[in-house]
């Protein structure tokens, strides 16, 4: 992470403020991380290169991977059928290493909207989309997504018509959901590459809609 942020009003390149963890006094938990990492290397459990490779692999995952899957499903009916039948295999088919987790794709239609949460912890399709946003892990989201999901959606700017069925899916450590958003109207002439640009992270969690929808 860059540390020379003095010229940027304390905002990172993504526009977020740097957390004080990056620059502040060494904390107890940071000390523990360094100690664990060094002990594991000293004991021959891991090498520094393995640790860095794992960080790089996680950094390489992003919502763009999921967007590519969604755009393919929008343009390839047979792929869409495979995705809905077995999300893990369909993602692997596109070259995404999603590990042992079971990926379950749930489809938004004209009359059904899907929303994903992990009420017990923070389970998220991280091996496809990267690490979850902070709000996904909060008490507020975890508690209310299953209690008053329409109100939660309104906080995200999605005002779901009353006649649209809302299904909320509670993830587990072994089973991670991803929403297959509905393809926006008027995009018939776009190819998969252009369509993928419409697919936002939140549209695959269900807290958002694709651009243009």
């Amino acid at each position: 992470m860059p540390h020379d942020h003095h010229d940027h009003d304390h905002l990172s390149p993504s526009g977020h403020p740097y957390r004080k963890d990056n620059d502040g006094a060494l904390s107890y938990w940071q000390t523990m991380e360094v100690a664990i990492r060094e002990l594991m290397v000293e004991k021959g459990e891991l090498t520094p290169a393995q640790i860095q490779a794992q960080i790089d692999a996680m950094d390489a995952r992003s919502p763009a991977n999921g967007a590519a899957v969604v755009a393919r499903a929008w343009t390839d009916p047979e792929f869409k059928a495979r995705l809905l039948a077995n999300g893990s295999d369909a993602a692997r088919e596109m070259g995404f290493d999603i590990g042992p987790m079971h990926l379950v794709a749930v489809e938004n239609t004209e009359d059904t909207h899907n929303l994903i949460v992990c009420t017990l912890c923070s389970c998220y399709p991280r091996n496809l989309l990267g690490l979850p946003p902070d709000w996904y892990k909060t008490r507020e989201y975890r508690s209310r997504a299953v209690r008053e999901p329409r109100a939660v959606l309104r906080e995200f700017g999605v005002d779901l018509p009353a006649d649209v069925t809302l299904r909320v899916h509670d993830s587990t450590a072994d089973m991670r959901y991803i929403v297959l958003p509905a393809r926006p109207a008027g995009t018939e002439n776009l190819d998969a590459t252009a369509l993928a640009k419409l697919v936002t992270r939140d549209s695959m969690i269900g807290t958002g809609l694709p651009k243009g929808a």
Binding site: W135, T138, R139, E140, Y141, R142, S143, R144, A145, E155
Partner: peptide, 9 residues
Amino acid sequence: MGGDAAGPV
């Protein structure tokens, strides 16, 4: 905590 009352996200 699913179903508990809580504030804005």
